[in-house]
């Protein structure tokens, strides 16, 4: 088979780019731990309290080690349960220091919801019967709005919260 020399140039260029992208994605997946948010870990959506992480007293932000935090949340139409403040009111803002590593753990009691911390890489689907997890390093200061990005019903637009990185 005869190839024009220009054809060889763009074949090498195209295959080279493809190989480069695959190597970078492979590195991210196998060495840096970039993977889907659901780990096929199931939970009974009618009884999320059976899992220790989603018991009412364990919801919200917990510091587990120096600079390491866990946030447990339960999504339901049309609210994110981030736990309670000391005065008993519902928490609407999660405050973490800059540079901390935060593991977000969330599940749904009813329908499919979304959990996106807009402006960061934290973005997951929240499915009833599954636990979604995403660990992120909060690199940038600011107030980030949490939004439900899966249409979940009439009050979908009322589902929001805030993550503040200080």
């Amino acid at each position: 088979m005869h190839l024009h020399k220009y054809e060889k140039v763009w074949l090498v260029f195209g295959l080279g780019s493809l190989a480069l992208f695959l190597i970078i994605i492979g590195f991210a997946a196998f060495w840096k731990g970039t993977h889907p948010q659901s780990h096929i870990e199931t939970i009974d959506p009618q009884n999320v309290e059976a899992n220790e992480a989603f018991q009412p007293e364990n919801l919200g932000l917990t510091e587990v080690a120096e600079g390491k935090y866990v946030v447990n949340m339960v999504a339901s139409a049309f609210n994110y349960d981030f736990g309670k403040e000391e005065d008993g009111s519902a928490t609407k803002t999660i405050r973490v220091p800059k540079g901390s590593t935060v593991l977000f753990q969330i599940t749904s009691k009813d329908v499919v919801h979304g959990f996106q911390v807009a402006g960061t890489n934290v973005n997951m689907m929240v499915e009833p019967g599954h636990i979604s997890r995403f660990e992120a390093v909060m690199k940038n200061n600011g107030e980030f709005t949490v939004v439900c990005n899966e249409y979940c019903g009439i009050g979908h637009h009322l589902m929001f919260g805030t993550v503040e990185v200080y």
Partner: peptide, 12 residues
């Protein structure tokens, strides 16, 4: 194929 090469490279 000069024009083709230029176009392919621009897209690439």
């Amino acid at each position: 194929l000069k024009g083709t090469l230029i176009m392919v490279m621009i897209l690439g």
